[in-house]
Design a binder for these strands. Structure first.
Lengths: 389, 389
DNA sequence: TATAAATAGTTTTAAGCGTGAACTAATTAC
DNA sequence: GTAATTAGTTCACGCTTAAAACTATTTATA
């Protein structure tokens, strides 16, 4: 109801963030910033010098001489030491805690199996204790903690920061994790599902200019995260992207969700194992690539079911990029090429423009580090959400 | 690539629009505007007085006395005479042209069958001529034309304002209607599909606070428009919401889109007629309400197929409201109640929060008038799209 | 009827913003 | 060594919003 109008202070804040966003990827000179942001040279000088004084930026050094006439550019970069963010990845089998500074340098990481904790308070005590301990251990300034990101299995209430009632994950049932962490560490807390954090990774570190990307993670369930022009699309309640419950076969088995023949019953590794009797995905995909009959059958089944759901998503969201992550992200080119083929021949959208299907290809980058990204994103986007209504 | 940073002029513009947006629904006093917008009283005075000078606002009159101490509020309202917008609805069978002023008062409307035009230029000449003629006829000032909205059957390139290649609609094949109209009338032109314009109607004139609403129109095809917090969700290419091609039966008939068993083959009036041999929808729905066996069977078929697609949309978009418009918007309560029931028992989302299914209930308000809304929306939202990147 | 209290709206003043023009700084081409 | 070119700074200016003191108008109360 109440709006957030703009005053001059917020105006400045917004322009500062526009500069920050430009510098996130690589150092730039003041002159380049002026061109790229549209701000006057003098304004860039004022703002950047203030940010340097505050320790948020620093003068990286003179750019290489360019054979062009004129003074050499002084490159400005984001000062990683300005602050750091923490990522907590709550997984069904393990809890991980990690930290990176604002330019993504890893400061610490630690993983522990969930089996070690007998109840919520034990697990949460561990989290609190470990964060404090690691901050001290790494010699970090408590005041420079800019935010905590938490990724957890859905369903979540991202806005309120509550882990609702995830199946097979009783450890944090109905847990107000954002409030709890805020109370202890006095910093912004961002709760997201794992697909969203991985999608943010793709946006932050891999992609240049994505338009409308669906990030699909396949594990126990099948999650989807939609990123539109760098923004996470959220439904009414921050849930959205429940890809796993697209109907693949209206006459299929009953699913816990109330529907029949949901994608999750067909296109997960477990489902394929059950149906086709494989042990691991490597066996399946290698066999399929080699052209063996049985593995090919299984993969065709996967392509047909997952493909059908993706066609539905492409038609509804008008996607131009789909990124596959999770269980099937191994020798994934074979799968993605065939999924693309399926989508191309089954979607109306594809008659109008092209769609890409890509493997996430970030096996070096673990999901637990991605948990830091919502906090990083929060820092970089901070105070940009002024409201029109 | 290039950003649009904020300067003080744009800042003012934004705050002016925040005020305008508040006044769109009902007159308010300066004091109330101050509270609702968050702007200081003095700022509201400055801005509103300027807008009054420009003729955009006017003093409606003193509010009714309220038994409270203090000076009586002077209500401010939007001055309808400030300007007007034109809406052109290009339908397969008819072309309509209409105009309303900025507070929605109808200034003129005219409908003509498409059969009267033998080619594109004849039809477009008619449109140009009629607009000019009607503007003159109604005694309107050409300079006060604030924008033209065009609704047309998809596929469209809304951004570039091009009608692409709609099936069964050869009259405007690959027609750059926005450019053509801009050249003649020198004002902003907004091209949208009909579902979007109707959804905007729902947002502008009916709803108070919608969050995530899917607007479904059923006619020859089945279109969907998603409105999130008053913004139309657009996919990568302004298409999105291709609800009609959600797969309902993977083993169904081949569809022109390349897929099998698309919703459009089941849940349109034509499809139901083919399958169940009815003449009109009235017959079907009245029979179903009366409990007759055959009509009930047909309606159950409709509920199951349309319901399945809606479940898919609910799961993906995390909707909280679905509005049904078009062919089935007659005695629609019966249908919407049953669709809701179906969705509730088949969607994961519904286990977390409630979803509404409503008939659009705007049969008084014709689609051709809705064509004005993109232009109106453009006027009210103007210059609010500053870019972070 | 007078007065206090409350609310609406205006005026004045101040602090802060981005900008453009004029400036200095540093480099290359000739 | 000089001119041309690019990078970056300084400063006056016009603009913004906001806070405080102000006027205007109403109700409650005595």
């Amino acid at each position: 109801m109440k709006s957030s109008p703009l005053n001059v202070a917020e105006l400045k804040n917004i322009n500062r963030h526009i500069i920050l966003e430009k510098l996130r990827l690589c150092p730039l000179s003041r002159a380049e910033l002026s061109v790229k942001t549209g701000l006057a040279k003098s304004s860039v000088t004022t703002l950047t010098n203030q940010m340097i004084d505050e320790g948020l930026l620093f003068e990286v050094g003179l750019a290489e001489k360019s054979n062009k006439a004129g003074r050499t550019r002084m490159l400005l970069g984001i000062n990683g030491d300005f602050g750091y963010v923490i990522g907590i990845n709550l997984h069904r089998t393990k809890i991980s805690i990690s930290a990176t500074n604002i330019v993504g340098k890893i400061l610490f990481e630690e993983i522990k199996p969930t089996s070690e904790f007998k109840n919520t308070s034990a697990a949460f005590d561990y989290i609190k204790g470990q964060i404090s301990h690691q901050i001290k251990n790494a010699g970090l300034d408590r005041k420079k903690l800019l935010g905590i990101g938490v990724s957890a299995p859905g369903p979540l209430d991202c806005e309120k920061g509550i882990i609702l009632t995830p199946p097979n994950f009783k450890l944090f049932n109905n847990f107000k994790i954002a409030d709890e962490l805020k109370a202890v560490f006095d910093c912004p807390v961002f709760l997201e599902n794992e697909a969203v954090t991985l999608a943010l990774y793709e946006h932050y570190c891999v992609e240049e200019q994505t338009n409308n990307t669906l990030f699909v993670t396949v594990s126990n369930g099948i999650g989807g995260a939609l990123i539109k022009n760098g923004e996470v699309y959220r439904g009414s309640h921050g849930i959205s992207g429940e890809l796993g419950h697209i109907t693949v076969d209206p006459n299929g088995e009953k699913c816990a969700c109330g529907n029949r023949g949901c994608l999750e019953q067909y296109a997960t590794l477990d489902a394929l194992k059950r149906r086709f009797g494989f042990v691991g995905y490597e066996e399946m995909i290698n066999g399929a690539i080699a052209g063996e009959e049985k593995p090919l059958l299984a993969m065709e089944f996967l392509i047909k079911t997952l493909g059908a759901a993706l066609v539905c998503a492409v038609n509804l969201f008008d996607l131009d990029k789909i990124i596959i992550s999770g269980e099937f992200d191994y020798k994934a080119d074979w799968l993605t090429a065939r999924l693309l083929e399926y989508i191309k021949s089954h979607s109306v959208i594809c008659s109008m423009h092209s769609v890409e299907v890509l493997p996430s290809g970030q096996r070096g980058f673990t999901a637990h580090l991605a948990a830091t990204l919502p906090a990083l994103n929060g820092f970089f986007k901070k105070s940009l959400n002024f409201d029109f209504k």
